[in-house]
Design a protein around this nucleic acid. Sequence first.
DNA 1: TTAAAAATAGGAATCATTACTGTTTTGCAA
DNA 2: TTGCAAAACAGTAATGATTCCTATTTTTAA
Lengths: 133, 133
Amino acid sequence: MAVKYSRQRQMIYNFLMTRKDHPTADVVYKNVRQEYPNISLGTVYRNLTLLADRGEILRIQVGDGVDHFDADTSRHCHFFCSDCGGVTDMQLDCVEDMFTRAQQKCSGKIESQSICFYGTCRKCLDKSVENQK
Amino acid sequence: MAVKYSRQRQMIYNFLMTRKDHPTADVVYKNVRQEYPNISLGTVYRNLTLLADRGEILRIQVGDGVDHFDADTSRHCHFFCSDCGGVTDMQLDCVEDMFTRAQQKCSGKIESQSICFYGTCRKCLDKSVENQK
DNA sequence: TTAAAAATAGGAATCATTACTGTTTTGCAA
DNA sequence: TTGCAAAACAGTAATGATTCCTATTTTTAA
């Protein structure tokens, strides 16, 4: 199935490139709709899936029950704050090394990896100290 | 809220200990029901969540839309075969090191991590070669 | 310019998980 | 032991993210 251009897909991708906070399909939908009020949620889902399948964006699952998307496809880690639900990037240089080691140890073929850390971000830590006063 | 003993929870945990393939809630349900036909799916979900929240088991998300559970709570990685959907363990000694580095780099507090590799397992690679003949 | 292939909008369907409710079990204390 | 409040349960209804469906519109190669 050849992929044809669509304005909607272009807008979805463009929007995702402007964001570093790994929005969900619904957030993408609500934002793109500002500029293109007729777009449907199904179209957003379909295109996010298409882009992710083609490796142009990343689908991230942090365990909050909703998929997040990232236009940065370089190998990197994520941090999920279980307090505020925020998803942030984390660059660790040992990531490439880990990929190599994993492939050496695995009898199958590894295509990609996903690394996520869970905890409480600085902002939420400070806020909880604030509230104890 | 004090946790009280329940036979259902005990059976769920016992079953999970016998398995190394990271079953889903539904698989746990179907198996425990063999021995305890009255157990309800809601009870299985509630207890898996309770055990995971208390750190007695691990909730694993590999992106197939269903949560998997693991009685082995030691820090280790997983491999997900996108062909057969199987989830297997992977021991990589650099995992501890990565956790330490992540905590050093992160301004917040990291509680846990999840590392998953995606690809095709040996069995499925062989099978696809077989089918091409 | 045309027509087949691909994509869309809008809404219905799916399905894993959670919430609700009346009943049963657990475990502390009298 | 017995009484009782807290916790857990079974069964079922509700939720909500995501996918599927269909008639219509857009894209693009010839």
